[in-house]
Amino acid sequence: MRHRFETSLPRFIWKGLSAISTAFAAIFVTAFVMPPAHASEPEKEIVILAFGDSLTAGFQLPPDKSFPAQLQAALRAKGYPVRVLNAGVSGDTAADGAARLDWSLSEPVDAAIVELGANDMLRGLDLKQTEASLDAILKALSEKRIELLAAGMEPLRNWGEDYAASFRAMWPRLAEKHHAILYPFFLKGVATVPALNQPDGLHPTADGVAVIVRNILPDVEKLIARVKEQRSRTQ
């Protein structure tokens, strides 16, 4: 006489083996396919707005030799996940910049380098108007929680010492008011050096831009550190 359990034994064994296989498969997937719990996520991209005039735009230079392009390349070479937007317009005064700021912010940005005022100085414009426009730009950016770097300019002596002194004094005053990092002279190491400037003596060559980037880079790294600190506070 055959017992009932004898006919069901193979099916019982099969179900057991199937359960064991499923358990091992789950372990394999967890161990080799799923990322470790402690693995860090890729760092979020940092977007920097380079907002200025022809010195930012890259007057008479190929796009990849402009200040924003060379700055982006230098930062990426150091491992920073950044994108630098070229919002430079040749000939712009500070008032021109203030008028176009809204449409220059066509996408969210984390930080801004503001380089304007040189054309105001070259034209001898009223510095009260220049400072008011720069103040409006920095205020609008700050209200959007955008970290700031104010890139200043050394004045020419065309308009006298009083004008030069007033022009020079704008930058630290504005930087302090808006908690911006101050880079006092955008053309440091380049101005008055013929080999680093185009024939007009005002606009840097590609090599001149490379010098600007090298000199300003430590301050841009401080700017990036501020962005990271702000992100850590809001997480």
Rank of each mutant, 00 (worst) to 15 (best):
L141Y: 10
A150D: 10
L156T: 02
L134A: 15
L125A: 08
M121P: 04
M153K: 04
R145M: 14
D120H: 04
L149Q: 07
G152P: 04
A136H: 09
A140P: 01
D126P: 04
D120M: 02
D135H: 14
L148C: 04
R145N: 14
Q129F: 09
I137P: 05
A151D: 02
R123W: 01
G124F: 04
E131D: 13
E154Q: 15
E131L: 15
A136C: 03
G124K: 06
D135R: 15
T130F: 10
R145T: 11
A132F: 07
I146G: 14
D135Y: 12
S142Y: 07
K139R: 07
L149G: 08
E147M: 14
A118K: 13
G152Q: 14
L127T: 00
L156S: 05
L141D: 04
R157E: 05
R123E: 00
D135V: 08
I137V: 10
R123P: 03
A118C: 07
P155C: 08
L141I: 09
R145Q: 11
L127R: 00
K144W: 06
L122W: 14
D120W: 06
M121H: 12
L156V: 00
I146D: 11
Q129W: 07
P155T: 02
R145A: 12
P155W: 08
G124W: 02
M121Y: 06
A136Y: 06
T130C: 13
N119V: 02
L122R: 12
L127H: 00
S133I: 00
G124R: 02
R123N: 02
D120A: 06
E147K: 14
I146A: 09
D126R: 13
I137A: 11
T130M: 10
M121W: 13
D120P: 04
K144M: 04
L134P: 03
A132I: 03
L141N: 05
A118V: 06
L156E: 01
E131Q: 14
R157T: 05
I137L: 15
L138A: 12
A140V: 03
M121C: 13
G152I: 08
M121S: 15
A118H: 05
K139C: 03
G152V: 11
L125P: 01
L122Q: 10
I146H: 14
D126F: 12
P155I: 03
G124Q: 02
L134Y: 11
A151T: 00
M153S: 08
I146Q: 11
K144D: 01
K144E: 02
L148I: 02
I146E: 09
L122I: 11
D120E: 08
A140R: 10
E154N: 14
K128N: 11
T130L: 09
S142T: 07
R145K: 15
G124P: 00
G152W: 12
A118F: 08
L156P: 01
R157V: 02
I137E: 06
M121A: 15
M121Q: 14
K144F: 04
L148Q: 06
K139L: 07
L148K: 09
D120T: 01
L138F: 11
L134E: 07
L127W: 00
A150I: 09
